[in-house]
Structure formats: C-alpha cells, structure tokens
Simulated assay, not measured.
Amino acid sequence: MNRTTILKWISGVCEGLLAIPIAGGTFIVSMSWTPLLFMFALHTVTLILSIKDARFSAGSILGMITSFIGAIPIIGWVMHTITALVLLIDAAIETKN
C-alpha cells in the first residue's frame, strides 16, 4: 500500500468521525473550527502527493471544499458524510489494485 492510499484511508476515517451528527459538530465547535483547518491541510497534502504518484484524488478536492462548508451545520454534516464515503471507496479500490 502506498502513501497516497494510506492518507486517503486516514482522511476518510477522520471525515467519517466528523460526520457523526452531534459528536462531530460538537467537536468542531468546541475546538473553534480548528479540525476543519487541520482537515483542509490533510486534504491538501493528500492531493499533492496523489498528483505526484499519478493517482488523482477527487476525494481530496471534495474534502478541501468540505472544510470550508463544514461550518454550516446541516450542510456540513452531509458534506462530511459524502467526502468520507468518496475517500474510503477510493482508498478501497486502490488497496485492491
């Protein structure tokens, strides 16, 4: 398993944890939206490394958008859920190859 796949698994799991309806929102608000900044940085690093490895990552771009939209309560929850699914599916496909 290469570094890009590992980062997709990690960012997918983190997005999934942020998508937990009340717990994820409470965590984000209690940390003054710092988790969204951290996730933006993680998605950026994942995207850059995936481009270097010739494994483009649409999930990372979606994650970067989610980091900005994540501050809106219901829309943020939906975006975190979608991003987690996209990243985890992409990582699972890369793991099989």
Rank of each mutant, 00 (worst) to 15 (best):
I69Y: 04
N97T: 10
T5W: 08
L17D: 09
E94P: 01
G63Y: 07
K8V: 01
T95I: 05
T5G: 02
G70E: 10
L17G: 11
K52H: 06
F56K: 14
F38I: 14
N2T: 07
S50W: 00
G59F: 03
D53P: 03
L18G: 06
I72H: 09
I75M: 14
T4L: 03
T26S: 15
G25Q: 15
V13A: 15
N2F: 00
V29I: 10
T66D: 04
I28M: 02
G16H: 08
L42P: 00
I28H: 02
A54D: 14
F40P: 03
S30E: 15
P21C: 01
T83M: 13
S67N: 01
I48Y: 09
R3V: 09
T83S: 04
A41R: 02
L85H: 01
I89K: 03
I48L: 07
I51N: 05
H80D: 00
H80V: 02
F68Q: 05
P73L: 04
I61Q: 00
A91N: 05
T46Q: 06
F27H: 03
S67L: 05
N97R: 12
S60M: 00
V29C: 02
H43D: 08
G59Y: 06
L88K: 04
E94G: 01
I28K: 08
I48W: 11
L36E: 08
I6V: 08
A84S: 14
I6N: 01
A84R: 00
L7H: 04
L36Y: 05
S11H: 12
G76P: 04
I61E: 13
W33H: 08
V86S: 11
F68V: 09
S50T: 03
L87S: 04
P73Q: 00
C14N: 09
M31P: 00
L17A: 14
V45T: 10
A71Y: 05
I61S: 03
I51P: 07
I72A: 14
T44W: 11
G24E: 06
L17M: 15
C14W: 13
I10L: 12
I28C: 02
I74W: 14
V45L: 02
H80N: 11
F27W: 06
T34H: 11
V86M: 10
I89H: 02
F38C: 06
V78Y: 14
V86T: 14
I72P: 04
W33Y: 15
T26I: 14
T26R: 09
T34A: 11
S32T: 07
E15A: 06
A19G: 06
I75Y: 12
G16E: 08
F27I: 13
W77R: 11
C14F: 09
H43E: 14
G16Y: 08
I74A: 10
F40L: 14
A23L: 12
W33V: 13
V86L: 11
T5D: 05
F56V: 02
E15D: 07
L37V: 06
G70W: 04
A23C: 11
I69Q: 04
A84I: 03
R3C: 01
W9M: 13
I61A: 10
I22M: 07
G76E: 12
L85K: 07
H80L: 04
L36R: 10
L18V: 11
H43L: 00
D53A: 06
V45F: 01
G16C: 12
V13M: 11
S32I: 00
G59E: 07
